[in-house]
């Protein structure tokens, strides 16, 4: 295929570089699996749900490994954020596409992109210094599931809004022109025609928002209170899988350390699974009926 040795060298080098890039994800999975193997071999999987509490120790027999409250905390906070961010994101997209004057739409889009670029520690700092005292006034202690949901909503909103916007923009223009020809109002066009037509794209947007919420760490560590207990109300502190890793990794040894890698493994599998689902859903838009 290649005439010169220089071309062959280039092709070979590039294949090598690409192979390494492609292998990283395999390495991630392999190392996380390998590091979590001690806990998987020494602690029965059922103990993660039935142990009395989360008091992990370097020794399997001494520790207690109940992950249930942590998993519930993760699910509640990210589900809450998705429930709030999805309507806000879709409405934002409708606003950009159908309601706002051109310059306003451009500014709003720009603002959402800026929001997407704000680092999660900064969200956390703002949440901790501004939101937590405010919420503590309504219902102490302030560092709670609710604060976490508010911050996460704000953090995943750009993902949901920008992807929804793209999904709506991808609806064939003939449909929009058809609506205009029929004399339908913008409102009817947006809510009764475009949103149903973009349904699978919007679902993908919500799922990818959920992925982001589940994987989020720093902001959640800073505003959620991090107490390992089943939350009884919206204003109880919670602990998530990601914050457990972030908080305990610095001193964890032995089986404890390994159980944190197990948390990472769970996160990795859940997130990858969700992304696969999102991909299947978004593919349906291309092939299935609109």
């Amino acid at each position: 295929m290649f005439r010169s040795t220089r071309d062959r060298f280039l092709s070979l080098t590039l294949h090598g570089l690409a192979a390494v890039s492609g292998l990283i994800v395999v390495l991630v999975l392999a190392f996380v699996l390998q590091e979590s193997s001690p806990v998987l071999s020494r602690v029965m999987l059922s103990r993660f749900l039935t142990d009395g509490s989360w008091h992990p120790a370097a020794d399997a027999a001494e520790g207690a490994f109940n992950l249930l409250p942590i998993v519930v905390g993760t699910l509640l906070s990210s589900a809450g954020a998705v429930v709030l961010a999805t309507p806000l994101g879709i409405l934002s997209a409708v606003f950009i596409q159908f309601y706002a004057p051109l310059h306003l739409a451009r500014w709003y889009r720009r603002m959402i992109e800026l929001l997407a670029g704000i680092p999660s520690v900064v969200f956390g700092l703002w949440g901790l210094v501004v939101l937590v005292p405010l919420i503590a006034r309504i219902h102490p202690p302030g560092q709670s599931l609710f604060t976490g949901i508010v911050i996460l909503t704000l953090m995943i909103l750009p993902t949901v809004a920008l992807l929804s916007n793209a999904a709506m923009a991808a609806v064939p223009r003939e449909i929009v022109s058809g609506c205009a020809a029929l004399g339908l109002s913008r409102r009817t066009t947006a809510f009764l025609i475009i949103i149903p037509a973009a349904k699978s794209g919007l679902t993908t947007a919500a799922i990818l928002g959920l992925v982001r919420a589940i994987g989020e760490t720093m902001a959640v560590v800073m505003v959620c209170g991090n107490v390992v207990r089943m939350p009884g109300s919206l204003f109880d502190p919670i602990r998530t899988l990601t914050s457990t890793i972030a908080l305990e990794m610095s001193y964890a040894r032995g089986v404890h350390r390994s159980s944190l890698f197990f948390c990472g493994l769970v996160l990795l599998l859940v997130v990858t699974g969700l992304i696969a689902v999102a991909e299947i859903v978004s593919r349906r838009q291309l092939h299935g009926p609109v």
Binding site: A18, A19, S21, G22, L23, I24, V25, V26, L27, V28, F31, V32, Q34, E35, V211, I214, G215, E216, T217, T242, I245, A246, M249, L260, F261, G264, L267, L268, V271, T272, I275
Partner: peptide
């Protein structure tokens, strides 16, 4: 295959990268 594995890598939560980096 490379593309697909990069797509998966893009979705890995940053804390898992932290674990990976610490281990490797």
């Amino acid at each position: 295959i490379v593309r697909r594995s990069l797509d998966v890598l893009a979705g890995v939560p940053s804390i898992v990268f932290g674990l990976f980096g610490n281990a490797v």
